[in-house]
Design a protein around this nucleic acid. Sequence first.
DNA 1: AAAACCGCCTGTCGGC
DNA 2: TGCCGACAGGCGGTTT
Length: 276
Amino acid sequence: MPELPEVETVRRSLLPYVLNKQIQSVDVHYKRILQDVSVPEFKYGLRDNRFIEIGRRGKYLLFYLESQHIMVVHLRMTGRLIFVSNSQIPLAKHTSVVFAFSEGSALRFEDQRKFATINFLTPDRLHEVRGLREMGPEPLSEEFTLEVFSHILRNRKAAIKGLLLDQRRIAGLGNIYADESLFMAGIHPERPANSLTKKEQERLYTAIRTVLQDAVDNQGTTVRDYRTGYGTEGSFQNKLQIYGKKGQHCPQCGEEVAYKKVVGRTSHFCPTCQKE
DNA sequence: AAAACCGCCTGTCGGC
DNA sequence: TGCCGACAGGCGGTTT
């Protein structure tokens, strides 16, 4: 669900609404969302505190607090962070946490499937969040060069799709953008990563960056659950070329879109444009 | 080192 | 209409 473009959109959309507002109280409706902190510690740590910045690393959001603590959020499959200007609005069914601001507004954490997580810690303990510690390079950053990408593929004979989904190799790609990137590059998802020619590596590198940036510019992809920080849908679902197109035809050649499990994940591709 | 499975949850959809 | 299994955008843990 939320992949890099969605998480980045949530970050940007929340900035103008939640920064520097006094947190009056926190209600935890689903305790197990908290990974490394008790409910009382969490509530106490946030009360009268303020979010002073929101960062992102891969699919993680980092809420920096005035107290120097950091609240690390991962939305997993169905997590949503929604700002409401009026906290009187009835809560959604699967609300996990509510951060109430003194001015009467609130930030709500909703999560139908309850996979989302929150860590609350000091900067010196940030490395305790394993997913963060082992995160690969940010694909839209300058450090992610073709050279770096090429090195990641080297000596790996596993399916390229699996490698794209592995957050320790590259940060932020999920099933949607992995499929879209492979389609744009004309590469079959089951190709061994180390079998890509220099030209193919370059095409895939460019495709990853192009697709992710385009999706960020379109506020992400709403297939079902994802919403921006103020509850609206993204629009990149209207620009998807291959993901979810089972039973339809390839926009490039008209061939029927193929659909199969690759490394345990449903994958869409064009058998003609993406030869094995 | 890496791949293959399971588990975590709820909701939806298709088949019967 | 109802039941049942499969499946959904993620990832950590364990086993192989």
